[in-house]
Design a protein around this nucleic acid. Structure first.
Length: 854
RNA sequence: GCCCCUGUGGCGGAAUGGUAGACGCGGCAGACUCAAAAUCUGUUGCCUUCACGGGCGUGCUGGUUCAAGUCCGGCCAGGGGCACCA
């Protein structure tokens, strides 16, 4: 029999699935549904191993659920707006090829290339539903949603201090600033005051936080990250009366420490600071100095506390005669709370640093248990823990919680304060000064202000003839795009030239997949049937950005009547990265894996044979050149072997090391399965019932049914690596019992072929055909198992004395306790250790273990 | 600084509180072969013993339990997230 030819099989079955429209999904159906979705890719041009891992996992689930009888939706699309396309066009221009690429052509060419690569993996995808977010037919609906949100006050325009990325020449959302740097460019972000478009995500701060508890099928890690990002803190907002007769609002989570206050501090960006700076040159210099400090971690850690005394004083809310100095302090952030605080150096590290530098009083007002209030000192370091109040008049002797309540109640009663909940989460700044994005459907009119584009005028199309040989946003520089008539007064007006953050595009694509042909943004009937996504899979790097925005968008779409749910993703799985060793030559330059040859632990250049340094295994990245292209590997080992590799060995949430030896092992296993099927002789015909069997045949039957039960359970729980191990075990059993009963062997072979179906679909179809089936395996239900056959007749029971293993017994399953006990006590090893003494106690765990306490 | 996760053979990793190391990779030995490849079979935690056997073993350290990789406390190491957030 010929050896398994993966390439032939893959072409044959992919064509057969296509011809049969095997993965075409009805829009709605009476069958129970299962929506399996992997985070859609950015069309960079070619797939990488991370895609292969992600889409293979999703495909296994989709095929498994389908075999279980679900109506499965498993679509694919393209997150197609974004900077790389623009940069490619710009590079093209600077290379002098003016006739060349524009972002649209670049993007669609990449999509075509990547589509065929994904198809080579044999994914069970309904390609009729494919769309790209840069399709006008997609973004027109996004513009419609934007206008709906605008009507509902979920979108607004506001001037604010925003993050400006000087390299990408655009503003960024808070979520896109990592360690003070732009998430794509890595450039230090600058602060600019600009008028920008925002989504009012903070309307749902509380809800987004609370609903996290209900997302039981999300990784705990992601929920914690979102919780921290939303950053809820309960406290008190109250006002100080200032000596210039104005009031100053501050926020605190520690109202209990109010009698330990020794100053009030304003942010350098506080409106009052700006007001004061108008007539104070020194203050202006000070503010400028503060703004120099970067926001990078290292800078913040080493940054000195800087303060400026305004000369103003603030009256203590419980003692009008107690005056506190009003300072400007560089560590007070305008973006949190009210941008002003009262400083209590005794119980806050930052206030402590500040007070020491500016020689302000440091007074303990909370004293830990066991300390004497008269001697307890916070001069050296602040005390943050629990304790009883002291030096605090009417609060003395109260514990911290009671004191917080007391202060809050009194200030509320006086009308000076209010208990409030503060969130770290800011509104989502969603406008970008970029050309390759969804145009914001708004118009600026000198007389009417900002007006929405009429729905009948949608879509606002991106022009094709953008000139990238300009500074700034090519949309803004376009000769006609921005010149429009005002939809209200009809006068000359200016079209908004900012586009939407690409994270907007990915915030609702999952809903569009339910019916990508709908004339509305979503087909309500279709989304009611398909949403939520039953299983969403992607990288942990989207734990906050994409997943938080999508949760917000779903709520906003609920509020505007498009969907009837709040949470888009029922179950989330975050898969690990694909890593590879790194290599560096003598000059310290990175070397690609394809250029080296391994001998033992050492690696050498194929050309020239010079030794290279083998570095740690890291996430595959272009910069480290440790990338292995999937297509080359599929060419060598076949798609099924690569899929199998991605599923075996490592648990799916953990990082996996790519290794060619591992892929080769998978390829060999594919061949072994093929041989087991093709070389099986004298199999019973298709459909033969299995009769009563014993001996080797019974053992094989039991192995078969155990494997079906275990693989079913493992795939249900996404434990692909264990499912793979179970299948190896069954393969070993089939090989061992190659001479067993003809019907039993057929049962075993059919089972193993069906079990590998979701993971190695082409091989499985081939084997299914060899076994004599006329219908395709994709149309075959998942195999059932017989419970009684998943248990062996005999069990091996370990026998311990004082917890130490001294022997084992092989007994019939369910042997009576007395017999087990007697047999255990008679074991040589047990007798030797007991030395004739009677045991104190014997614990028998049925069918598992006996522990004798001597 | 705060929060979270992970530490098991040469390697990737299994293990509802109940025989630690399933399964795979790698290694070793053998069969087939003139030979090699491919394939198949056996073996493979460490120490000790001719052997039977014995001892030690899940980062370290205490504890709970008849029984701990698993539960609890305290450390150590590695990784991740957040961070002048009042």
């Amino acid at each position: 029999m010929a050896r398994y030819n993966a390439k032939e099989a893959e072409q044959k079955w992919q064509a057969a699935w296509n011809a049969a429209q095997a993965f075409l999904t009805p829009t709605v159906s009476d069958k129970p549904k299962c929506y399996v979705l992997e985070m859609f890719p950015y069309p960079s041009g070619r797939i990488h191993m991370g895609h292969v891992r992600n889409y293979t996992m999703g495909d296994v689930i989709a095929r498994f659920k389908r075999a279980l009888g679900f109506n499965v939706l498993h679509p694919m699309g393209w997150d197609a707006f974004g900077l790389p396309a623009e940069n490619a066009a710009r590079d093209n221009v600077s290379a002098g090829k003016n006739s060349g690429i524009n972002p649209r052509e670049w993007t669609y060419a990449n999509i075509a290339a990547m589509r065929s690569e994904l198809q080579a993996l044999g994914l069970a995808i309904d390609w009729t539903r494919e769309f790209a977010t840069c399709d006008a037919d997609y973004y027109t609906h996004q513009q419609k949603l934007f206008l709906d949100f605008y009507k509902d006050d979920l979108v607004y325009r506001s001037e604010a201090d925003v993050n400006w990325d000087p390299v990408d020449m655009t503003v960024l959302a808070n979520e896109q600033v990592i360690d003070g740097k732009g998430w794509r460019s890595g450039a230090a972000v600058e602060r600019r005051k600009l008028s920008q478009w925002f989504f009012r995500i903070t309307r749902y701060s509380e809800e987004l936080l609370r609903a996290l508890d209900g997302l039981e099928k999300w990784p705990e890690k992601v929920r914690i990250m979102q919780k921290n990002w939303i950053g809820r803190s309960e406290g008190l907002r109250f006002s100080f009366d200032l000596s210039n007769l104005t009031k100053l609002d501050v926020f605190t989570t520690r109202p209990d420490t109010l009698f330990g206050a020794s100053f009030v501090a304003l942010s350098p960006d506080h409106p009052l600071t700006e007001e004061l700076a108008r007539d104070d040159e020194k203050l202006r210099d000070f503010v400028a100095e503060c703004r120099k400090t970067g926001t990078a971690e290292a800078e913040i850690e080493t940054a000195e506390k800087l303060g400026y005394d305004t000369g103003l004083t603030a009256a203590h809310p419980f003692d009008p005669d107690w005056k506190l100095p009003v300072m400007i302090a560089n560590f007070v952030l305008m973006g949190y709370g009210t941008g002003a605080i009262f400083g209590c150096p005794g119980h806050d590290q930052r206030d402590h640093d500040f007070a020491r530098k500016y020689h302000l009083p440091i007074l303990p007002v909370v004293v830990p248990e066991g300390e004497d209030p008269k001697t307890f000192s916070v001069a050296a370091e602040p005390y943050i823990g629990p304790g009883k109040l002291a030096n605090s008049r009417f609060l003395d002797e109260l514990d911290v919680e009671a004191a917080k309540n007391e202060v809050a109640s009194r200030l509320e009663a006086q009308g000076k304060g209010k208990r409030t909940v503060n969130y770290r989460l800011r509104d989502w700044l969603a406008s970008r000064q970029r050309a390759w994005g969804c145009p914001i459907p708004m118009i600026h009119c000198a007389t009417c202000g900002v007006v929405p584009v009429k729905e009948s005028d949608l879509p606002v199309r991106l022009p094709d003839d953008l000139n990238f040989n300009v500074k700034g946003n090519p949309l803004d520089a376009h000769p006609t795009f921005k010149h429009v008539d005002c939809p209200v007064c009809g006068g000359k007006a200016r079209r908004e030239t900012d586009t939407l953050d690409t994270f907007v595009d990915s915030s609702w694509y999952f809903a569009r997949f339910a019916d990508p042909f709908s004339a509305d943004p979503v087909n309500r009937e279709a989304v009611n049937y398909w949403l939520p996504v039953d299983q969403y899979i992607g990288g942990i790097e989207h734990a906050i950005l994409h997943l938080l925005y999508a949760r917000f968008f779903t709520r906003a779409m609920h509020a505007t009547g498009w969907v009837k749910l709040d949470e888009p993703f029922e179950s989330l799985f975050t898969q690990g990265m694909v890593c590879h060793e790194t290599y560096q030559n003598a000059a310290g330059q990175w070397v690609e894996p394809a250029e080296i040859e391994k001998r033992g632990d050492k690696a050498f250049l194929k050309a020239g044979g010079a030794e290279v340094t083998v570095g740690h295994s890291e996430k595959m990245s272009k910069s480290k050149k440790n990338v292995v292209a999937p297509m080359g590997m599929i060419e060598v080992f076949g798609a099924d072997a690569i899929r199998w590799f991605m599923l075996s060995d490592s648990p799916p949430e953990r990082d996996v090391d790519w290794s060619e030896a591992g892929a080769e092992g998978c390829w060999r296993f594919a061949g072994r399965i093929h041989r087991l099927v093709t070389e099986a002789e004298g199999l019973a015909p298709v459909g033969t019932a299995v009769g009563e069997v014993s001996g080797a045949a019974l053992e094989l039957r039991q192995a078969t049914h155990k494997a079906i039960a275990a693989v079913t359970d493992d795939l249900t729980h996404l434990r692909f690596n264990r499912a793979v191990a179970q299948i190896y075990t069954l393969a070993n059993a089939i090989q061992l019992h190659a001479a067993a009963d003809a019907a039993v062997r057929r049962e075993a072979l059919e089972a193993i072929v069906l079990l590998i179906g979701p993971m190695m679909p082409h091989l499985a179809e081939t084997c299914w055909e060899v076994l004599g089936h006329k219908t395709m395996l994709v149309d075959t239900p998942w195999p059932a198992f017989i419970e009684a056959l998943t248990r062996s007749d005999n069990v091996t029971i370990a026998v311990q004395v004082n917890g130490k293993r001294r022997g084992e017994l092989t007994l019939a399953l369910g042997a009576p306790e007395d017999a087990v006990k007697a047999a255990a006590l008679a074991l040589d090893g047990v007798v030797r250790v007991l030395e004739g003494k009677a045991p104190k106690k014997v614990i028998v765990v049925p069918n598992r273990i006996v522990n004798i306490v001597a």
